[in-house]
Design a protein around this nucleic acid. Structure first.
Lengths: 161, 161
DNA sequence: CGCTTCCTGTTATGTTATAACATACATAGT
DNA sequence: ACTATGTATGTTATAACATAACAGGAAGCG
């Protein structure tokens, strides 16, 4: 597993795994929070798969490595990563994915291919809700923006997986 | 139950229940699909509560009225309403809410108050994803746009429920 | 009538998520 | 060294959400 879609373009991501890991380790030190073995491995698993994974899929991997076999182990580690902004939860899929830009101040949006399941992260503000929210007096704290559709490869039957 | 928040402003919604029901009945006839008792009652329940409800909450109501007691009954009826655009699924809450504008061609966005649970529907295009998606060559079919925060009432502690 | 189609009833199970409690382990204060 | 504290982990049990699969019944149509 060294070549996989990021966004929707193939790339070698051995390097991005390394750099993302280094970055989150640095951020943890900076923030005074702990990057423990379970948390670290959970993050690595998400990075390696480079796609949205269910909590129980992550748990199966952790279990195979002797790092924990009960749901709370996975949910706690994933919760930590999400809280720190190192991973995101994809509501539509009830799944988690490593953040493409850990540490960056961003309110992410996602594009989910319904055919191949690839998930790409894009930048987004609070979206078109800003105006509506202001009008209604609603104070936005967080937004979920997820689009489902067809990625470039899956639009042409011949090239689809 | 005759006065409840719509959007975030109190209103009498006896009338909107009536008109929404009449509208969906008309649309069903127009589309050649059936508005059966279970479906109709499910829609009415969502309209009456006028808030996001879990499938099992809806099921409990249906059961109390002798319309079905097993999960598939509720999920089928809710699925029908969502398919027809008469209700929406709120991914963040794993819940369902009656559509504020049945029949209208709209891609809805939602504002969810984390304190009182009120959900307001707002219009949205495909949001800020349009540009990113076009750039990536991603073909959007459907979007989920959900904001969580504080509604006007819950921003001032004295008036909060 | 025999056929199809659509809706409903039911069983059983699968999937996702968390509450609650117990234990371990590091570090700081005395 | 001792104990208090905070943080992380281990474990049990269960809650909450969702669907596969099959059986039966009512309506429409040749």
């Amino acid at each position: 597993m060294s070549s996989d879609p990021l966004g929707f373009a193939p790339h070698d991501h051995t390097r991005c795994v390394q750099s993302a890991l280094a970055e989150v380790v640095r951020l943890c030190a900076e923030r005074g929070v702990q990057m423990t073995p379970v948390r670290r491995r959970t993050f690595e698993i998400l990075l390696e798969e480079h796609t949205a994974m269910g909590a129980y899929d992550v748990l199966a991997r952790l279990d195979a490595e002797g790092l924990g076999s009960k749901p709370p182990v996975a949910y706690r580690a994933l919760g930590f990563l999400v809280d720190q902004g190192f991973a995101h939860r994809i509501e539509r899929l009830n799944a988690f994915i490593a953040c493409a830009h850990p540490g960056a101040d961003h309110n992410p949006a996602f594009m989910i291919c319904r055919t191949c399941g690839t998930v790409a992260e894009a930048a987004a503000g609070h979206g078109p809700l800003g105006a509506s929210a202001a009008l209604a007096g609603f104070q936005i704290e967080q937004t979920v923006i997820e689009a489902e559709g067809l990625c470039p490869l899956c639009q042409t039957p011949e090239t689809a997986p």
